[in-house]
Design a protein around this nucleic acid. Structure first.
Length: 762
DNA sequence: ACCAACGTAGAT
DNA sequence: ATCTACGTTGGT
């Protein structure tokens, strides 16, 4: 970046003809039409972030205005053809508005991603050849001519597509940075051993002494193994040509049979298939976590508090309001892609239209290649995972006893030292086991580390970047399941949805492979309010897009090696996120929270985050420093946090002061295993004039060895306190606890639920 | 007419 | 391979 600056200075005059030149494009057909934002997608509806490179360039944000690019947060997901676009054959605009769903395709304008020609499929003379519709982009296909000619369009970028990597904040950069930052990465990679080995030896942790203590955090070099070699081989298979085969294969097989000639159906199907591809992959990756989650679902309580509540609530009973539609629309806003196309029960015999074979073509080869690679990777991963037992140990979230303070489990969680190990090349996998096993408090959760670690390699950030960002899942249009004979199934979608509501995420993933309609239905975000990727070794681009599509209210990325860029990317696309669990992640990744905002976040778990100390806490809690006009507000980005989990962090009163000041709603605070926390800290939290004094309902100070009996006297000031966990605090006596109970009994009845665990009796 | 920003040539 | 700059298009 430094060099960029210099570059700018000179402001060489280069681009005279730049934008205008469309040589190759023009040759084939008329002028290339620039696409324009759809104005409906989530991205289009957003306001400028004011922080990205492009925003900073804008005059309104005090920049020079030279770049003239839209905010990276507002990159349209489905850029559309301009209204002025017309068919090169008949010279008329698209007429899809005039017809029914089924007929739209032939009268809508389609832009060829290869020759750029914009035509009405109906106006083409070559009807025999089939066009290949690109579902990624509205009104985009490979026209019959090009398709027939076997052109690949490789050389050009598809219309309307922007390389994410162009974006200044691109992962590419980060990646580089990371690399440089710690060469540990590569090292670790090299060292990394085959998963198999690791698996067998997971146990060790159990033996490890429960060091709960503030682990000495190692430098922030992230141990991110990125074994890609393996993948590499596979990828090859999907280069260009292969990719086609791949898609074709998929569709041909499963779908065709179902919906033979209907264009819509075919389209849909393929679309779905495509989706399936993504979804499947993604989903499968979710399995582990999902499965886990599902199991726990019934008992899970974290929903208790506001945050979790919503999340969980809907799950079982699918409220079928289709809130999502709007946003989705954007995605499908394009005439062709509209959800509407689904219902097609029409026999597609309609004459003249070229049979468009729907195939999901990525806008450009690069993209597709990248995507395919990812898919491949994912598949590999899947394969591996499937091979292994899906069992997972309960993770913090899940296990979390309703009350939020489940000490043992979470706390016991990972210790940083683990990380160190990883860095050294030790099995990253070990992490998985730690948490559950290390329960100093004695709450060992079952599920010993049965879970094998999928030998996944972390994805390339680059690839993630190039992923097309998709809007939330569409609440699938068909009200009823289309049948092969053109009729529809008697059972309505809502009923199906209720049924799906009882499935585990894993099961939903399976359902998604059944048919396009189920695929869509099962992607409904109401079925995915909680997405759990806890301990998922590698977060791939597909997973990220899968997450975005489902718009979860709760996301657990604990103990994953998610990168900052990925997290940032996610957060910015999950505006409604309520619960974010990042325990055990690196500070580098968590720091994404410093620049992204998730105003609705209620629960933040950053326990055992390596490298998270006072200074970092300050960055996390400080209001944006950028007060240029246009900036939203300078309030703390985490001002609405109710539940904050800081177990195992090396933080001091300095952090507490910030928390007290910036989190007025804080109700639950987990400071267990924080060795610097002492009576003075408690004094601060409960001092007159602080909001925490009245807002705190639960506090976890277990294994805080500097806390003494005196803290209990401070807690008497708290008006709402209901739960005080002082277990394993060496300096807290049982006597003091009993005294506390006795004194409080005048107003509130407390009881000792366990040794040094005070709980309000209600 | 004005603003936003697409798509790409050219610089790094 | 990336990133910047900008002519020009598209929308209002």
């Amino acid at each position: 970046m430094s060099f960029q600056r210099e570059a700018n200075r000179p402001k060489p005059k280069m681009g005279t003809s730049a934008a205008v030149k469309l040589p190759s494009n023009r040759s084939a057909s008329g002028a290339r039409r620039r696409r324009t934002r759809c104005r409906k997608c989530e991205a289009c509806l957003r306001t400028e972030c004011g922080e990205c490179h492009f925003c900073k360039d804008m005059k309104k944000f005090g920049g020079p205005g030279r770049m003239k690019q839209s905010c990276i947060m507002r990159q349209c997901i489905a850029p559309v053809l301009p209204h002025t676009a017309v068919c090169v054959v008949c010279g008329e605009a698209g007429k899809e508005d005039t017809l029914e769903e089924e007929d739209k395709f032939n009268v809508m304008l389609m832009e060829c991603s290869i020759c750029n020609e914009i035509v009405h499929p109906n106006c083409l003379k070559v009807k025999e050849a089939s066009g290949v519709v690109n579902d990624e982009l509205p009104n985009c296909w490979e026209c019959p001519k090009c398709n027939y000619a076997g052109k690949t369009g490789k050389q050009k970028r598809g219309p309307g597509f922007k390389y994410a990597s162009n974006l200044p904040g691109s992962l590419l950069k980060e990646q580089k940075a990371v690399k440089e930052e710690g060469e540990a990465t590569s090292t670790s990679t090299a060292k990394r051993k085959p998963e198999g080995d690791e698996i067998s030896r997971h146990r060790p942790e159990e033996r490890e002494p429960l060091h709960r203590h503030p682990p000495v955090l190692t430098p922030s070099t992230l141990p991110r193994p990125r074994p890609e070699d393996k993948l590499r081989k596979k990828r090859k298979l999907f280069d260009d040509d292969e990719e086609e085969d791949f898609s074709v294969r998929k569709k041909g097989k499963a779908d065709e049979p179902l919906f033979p000639k209907l264009l819509h159906q075919i389209k849909t199907e393929e679309e779905d298939q495509e989706e399936e591809v993504d979804e499947e992959e993604t989903d499968s990756l979710f399995w582990r976590g999902l499965e886990r989650r599902d199991r726990l679902e019934d008992t899970e309580d974290w929903a208790e508090d506001g945050d979790g509540k919503d999340t969980k609530t809907n799950f079982p009973r699918p409220p079928l309001k289709t809130p999502v539609l709007d946003s989705d629309q954007s995605h499908c806003s394009s005439p062709q892609a509209g959800p509407s196309s689904e219902g097609g029960s029409e026999p597609q015999e309609k004459g003249p239209r070229p049979k468009a074979r729907r195939k999901r073509r990525l806008p450009n080869k690069e993209l597709s290649k990248a995507l395919n690679q990812e898919i491949q990777k994912t598949e590999d991963c899947l394969a591996n995972e499937n091979r292994q037992p899906l069992k997972v140990e309960p993770e913090s979230e899940n296990e979390e006893p309703k009350r939020g303070f489940r000490i043992g489990s979470d706390l016991g969680g990972e210790r940083p030292h683990l990380r160190t190990k990883e860095m050294n090349g030790t099995p990253w996998e070990l992490r998985h086991f730690y948490p559950s096993q290390i329960t100093p408090l004695g709450f060992n959760r079952s599920s010993p580390g049965t879970r094998p670690l999928p030998p996944r390699s972390p994805p390339k950030c680059v690839q993630m970047e190039r992923h097309v960002i998709r809007p939330p899942p569409i609440s699938p249009p068909p009200d009823r399941l289309p049948l092969v004979d053109g009729k529809t199934h008697a059972v309505q979608r809502e009923v199906w949805m209720k049924l799906f509501g009882h499935f585990t995420h894993k099961e939903l993933c399976v359902c998604m492979r059944v048919c396009k309609t189920w695929n869509r239905w099962c992607c409904d975000k109401r079925l995915w309010t909680n997405i759990d990727l806890n301990r998922c070794k590698s977060i791939t681009p597909l997973m990220l897009s899968g997450i975005i599509r489902r718009q979860p209210l709760s996301l657990d990325l604990s103990w994953t090696n998610i990168s900052k860029k990925q997290l940032s990317w996610l957060i910015n696309r999950l505006p409604g996120l309520r619960v974010l669990l990042l325990s055990g992640c690196s500070w580098v990744a968590v720091s994404a929270l410093c620049t992204s905002s998730c105003p609705l976040l209620r629960t933040l778990d950053v326990q055992w985050v390596e490298g998270l100390k006072d200074a970092q806490m300050r960055d996390l809690l400080s209001p944006p420093t950028d007060n240029r006009p246009g900036q939203l507000d300078n309030r703390c980005k985490l001002r609405n946090i109710l539940d904050l989990r800081l177990a195992g962090l090396d933080i001091t009163d300095a952090s507490l002061r910030l928390i007290i000041r910036h989190m007025p709603l804080l109700s639950r605070l987990d400071l267990s295993y924080c060795n610097h926390i002492n009576d003075h800290s408690v004094n601060l939290l409960t001092a007159a004039g602080t909001t925490t004094r009245d807002s705190l309902t639960e506090i976890n100070l277990s294994v805080c060895n500097r806390v003494t009996d005196q803290s209990l006297t401070f807690f008497k000031r708290c008006g709402s306190i209901c739960h005080i966990d002082l277990r394993y605090c060496k300096q807290v006596t049982k006597m003091a606890c009993e005294q506390f109970i006795a004194e409080m009994s005048v107003s509130v009845q407390f009881g000792l639920k366990e040794d040094k665990l005070l709980q309000k009796l209600s």
